[in-house]
Amino acid sequence: MSSSRATRTSGKSPSDKLRTSLIYLLLAIGVGIMLFPFLWMVATSFKLPQDVYNLRLIPETITFDNYTAIFKKAPFGDWIKNTLIISLIATATVVVFDTAAGYVLAKFSFYGKQVIFLIIISTLMVPTEMLIIPWYLIANDFGWSDTYWGVLFPGIITAFGIFLMRQFMDSIPSDLLDAARIDGLNEWRILLHIAIPLVKPAIVTLIILTFIGNWNQFIWPLIVLQTESKFTLPVGIVYFSSELKDTSNWILIMSGTTISIAPLIALFLIFQKQIIRGIALSGMK
C-alpha cells in the first residue's frame, strides 16, 4: 500500500500542490487549537503575580517560585504517589484477570459461555455514575471509604478489557493451542507461553488504556476519598483550585494543573508509538 502512495505523491500537479498546502494549513491551525491551552497553562504557571493578566505567552520574568509554593501549600507529592499506586495496582489486576477471562471466552467452548459473556458485556452499559451511590453506601458499610482499596474495588477487572482480549485471542489458531496440549503443557502454561506472546500488542493497549483511565478517573475517588493526604491528583486539583479560586490565584492553579498533566504527557510521548498503535488496534476490532 505504501508503495502505491509513493507513486501517487511523486506526480504532482499545481492544483494538487495547492490542495496539499491547504491541508497542511488546516492541520497547523488544528495544532494551535490543540496545544494552545497547554502553552497558556505553562506560561501562566511561570509568571509573577502582577503579570497574571498580561497576555504575553512568554513572561517577561520567569519564576519557578510558584512550583515551590504549591508543594508547600498542598501535598502534591502524596497525591502523585497515591495516583501512581492506585493506577499501577489497578492496571496489574486488570491485565491478569482480563487476559485470562478473554482467553477462556475466546478459545474454550462450554455450556453457558454465551450467557456469561453477555452478563460481562452487559455491565459495559452500566456507567460508573449509575453505581456511585450503591458503591458509596457499600464502601461506607464495609469501612472502605478513604482507603486505596475503596478507590480500587470497582475497577480491578474491566468488562471492556475482557471484551478486547477476547477479540484478540479469537485470532489465535486453535491448532497451535491443541498442539501445545498434546505436548503436555497445562492450561496456565499455554496461556502464559503461547497465547499471551501472540497478543502482546493488545496487552500493551490494555495496560496503557487502563493506566490512563485510572490516572484520570475522577468522580469515584472524589466521593470515596475524604482526607487530603489520600487524594488522587484529579481530586486534589479540584480542592486545590476551588480553594484558591476565591483569591483568584490563577498562577498557582495553573502550576497545579501543569504538575498533574505533565507526567501523563511525558508518558505518552515516551510510549506514543505503542499507545497510538494500540488504540488503532482496539478501534479495529
Binding site: Y136, N140, S145, D146, L222, I223, Q226, T227, E228, Y239, S242, E243
Partner: peptide, 14 residues
C-alpha cells in the same frame, strides 16, 4: 480538616 466546598459531603460520608 476538610475543604469548604465538600465539607458536608465528607462529614456525611464519615
Amino acid at each position: 480538616n476538610f475543604p469548604y466546598d465538600q465539607y458536608n459531603q465528607k462529614v456525611a460520608t464519615l
